[in-house]
Design a protein around this nucleic acid. Structure first.
Lengths: 116, 116
DNA sequence: ATCATACATTGACATTCATCAATTTGAGCA
DNA sequence: TGCTCAAATTGATGAATGTCAATGTATGAT
């Protein structure tokens, strides 16, 4: 039996607040750069990645990537943990369920780039 | 066994084009009004609804609702069929799979309002 | 033909957004 | 204490977005 993504589950008699929150998650995923970041995090070794590894993937500025990561954190899709000088971003349970729903299942891990 | 939403399935070694297309669908769903429209269509009798029934639900202008519906059509989430003076919008297969993934399954049908 | 209805389209406007360059913060190391 | 590196933040700017009022279009009825 399929394990439903409970964290994003809504009923069709959903409250306006639920619709707003779900729309906010969709909105966060609705930018190609951010969706790419999420997928790259999921594909990274240990299912976490730091900004210096994610930045070159995007072709954007470091500041811009930090900006997008913050949006994903605020949407509840990524979580940040700082170790030493590095910030590691990993998927939240909500994000994992969404990726699973989209058949973006657990990948063959991408080897980390170690750019930093 | 769960029936995976093939229409939105991507692999983690996805092409940039796939990411862009998926992000476009998320973006279309990333507006509270549009997500509300999609859910209202899904909950309507016969899984289709016309603009005059959807408009009062939103509290917005008819023109604005038409605008949002067009965006959803262009994203491949709704399809339009005109019968007489009315335009009926219904979910595409892609939209159905997404709603199913989010556990927004088939509803107890909402009775149509017949505002027009 | 005329008129009313349902919907689409246009133009305008304020707001939000994505991006960059530059600066700041903060942690480890010499 | 300085110095370096990773990341966050700020300010600015051009583009995109959501909304409305007004107009256009097409269909059916009188």
């Amino acid at each position: 039996m399929y394990d439903w993504p409970m964290s994003v589950a809504v009923s069709l008699t959903k409250s306006p607040a639920e619709v707003t929150s779900l729309a906010a998650q969709f909105k966060a995923l609705g930018d190609p750069t951010r969706l790419d970041l999420i997928i790259n995090v999921a594909a990274s070794t240990g299912a976490e990645a730091c900004v210096c590894d994610l930045t070159p993937e995007t072709g954007l500025t470091q500041g811009t990537v930090s900006h997008h990561l913050r949006i994903l954190v605020e949407a509840g899709l990524l979580e940040r943990s700082q170790r030493g000088k590095w910030s590691y971003y990993s998927l939240t349970a909500v994000a994992k369920e969404i990726l699973k729903s989209l058949n973006i299942s657990q990948p063959a891990r991408k080897s980390s780039k170690a750019n930093c």
